[in-house]
Design a protein around this nucleic acid. Structure first.
Lengths: 241, 241
DNA sequence: TTGCTCCTCACGTCACGTGAGGTGGC
DNA sequence: TTGCTCCTCACGTCACGTGAGGTGGC
């Protein structure tokens, strides 16, 4: 008597359902049946199944295996293509691991681009969100420049004051803070010339870039903070965040 | 006015459908709608979406992302688990590439276990099938021993005669061939002591092992060849293939 | 009126896993 | 009669892709 479905599945190291699936899609011919409907497999079926499971573990899709046919020609070209594919997958995973290492090493929030891994750590939630958004719309080079700025520059007292600014801060407080921040931005612009042109290279075009930043600012900061930003721009009329 | 679905999708570098999918599974809250039913996204939605897409590209499943919650705690443990997983995936792919290299280098048929990569090449189809089957049912150590035998031993004239043996070969031819083959097997048994106990360590148990080999022999070789095998066993009474 | 965007079903993909419900031989 | 194996539907998984069919603002 011949093998049952469970038996060839076990001999081939696969599952009952997998064997039936290979029948369903026409990858493995169905064997003869006994009078009660039970399937009876022979060596040729086992051979075919062994080939299938081998190719599956190597990483071929069932479609590819079907295309390879049941002949015994050596599919060198397909094997090389698969190898190249595996090489790509390995590289991609290695890049991901490098990124993970950066994130883990820096304790960087997971919603920030990993270029910012080296940045000084204490952002307010609004700042973090703002940086996440700007990080998405800036082009690669500008993002790197921005990241460099955040990495080299320590947090200043004026930053704390800005974060803590209440929505109803009075006129004098706002103007004074705007002046201190403008002085800071001026200094940064000299130290990091890229800041002057920030927004020149974006992923969404200059118009969407401006719109996006404006919307982010509108939602993330309170009226007094937004007013301080406006005043800053009057004092030091350059693009800035 | 706020962002449309297409707009946040583009800002986050993902697809319209992906955003809707995140809504469907409750990963991303739906925003307010305009009177015409159009969705209007704000910065908080963009932030959430950015976090999701970032974690997706790192390799988290949507379930895992849901479990991480929308808080901004640093998911260090999850990141480390993911890293370990990526390391495993890389290793597995490297093993597959090594196996592919062996197969490609040797021109080995894809239905044979790759341990047999070094084996002498000219198997008859029946032999190849038989080796594939026995390769599956032998345990790892015995498979290695068998592979070593096939690697070191050159093909003999008697092998060719056996492959070419017609189903109606006469008595004398069979007996003579059986004697030559038995002598060969005796020599091999001395050179490779593992041959004597072949079948002791199997993946399917001794009973299924014997059954499997018998069925394979029955289907792969003609009556005269099977008779020669029987005679061999009488002359040199050891397990053999 | 035409073109473009938005919307909601709802089926398709891939390689099976997992019951559901029924039959056959000991 | 009970337990075990075999069978055939047929839905579920995962992260969306891809139309199908309809509406709204310029």
């Amino acid at each position: 008597m011949a093998w049952s479905t469970r038996e060839i599945a076990e001999l081939a190291g696969t599952s009952l359902r997998a064997v039936r699936h290979y029948h369903d899609i026409g990858l493995l011919p169905e064997p003869e049946r006994r009078s009660n409907g039970y399937k009876q497999y022979g060596v040729t079926h086992l051979m075919r199944l062994l080939r299938i499971t081998k190719l599956v573990t190597l990483g071929f899709s069932l479609h590819q295996i079907a295309d390879l046919g049941d002949g015994d020609e050596h599919p060198a070209e397909a094997l090389r293509a698969l190898d190249a594919d595996l090489a790509r997958q390995i590289e991609q995973r290695q890049r991901l691991r490098a990124e993970l290492a950066e994130i883990l090493g820096s304790g960087l929030a997971t919603d920030l681009p990993s270029e910012f891994a080296g940045a000084r750590k204490e952002f307010s939630e609004a700042d973090r969100n703002f940086i996440a958004v700007i990080g998405r719309v800036l082009g690669k080079k500008e993002r790197a420049a921005y990241a460099e700025l955040l990495t080299d520059e320590a947090r200043m007292e004026s930053d704390d004051d800005f974060d803590a600014l209440p929505a109803d801060a009075d006129e004098t407080t706002r103007q004074e803070l705007a002046e201190r921040l403008a002085a800071e931005v001026r200094r940064l612009s000299e130290q990091f010339p890229a800041v002057k042109t920030l927004g020149a290279e974006t992923t969404v075009g200059p118009r969407r870039y401006r719109e996006t930043l404006d919307r982010a600012i509108g939602e993330l900061y309170n009226p007094a903070q937004r007013d301080v930003m406006r005043r800053m721009r009057l004092i030091y009329p350059k693009e800035n965040g």
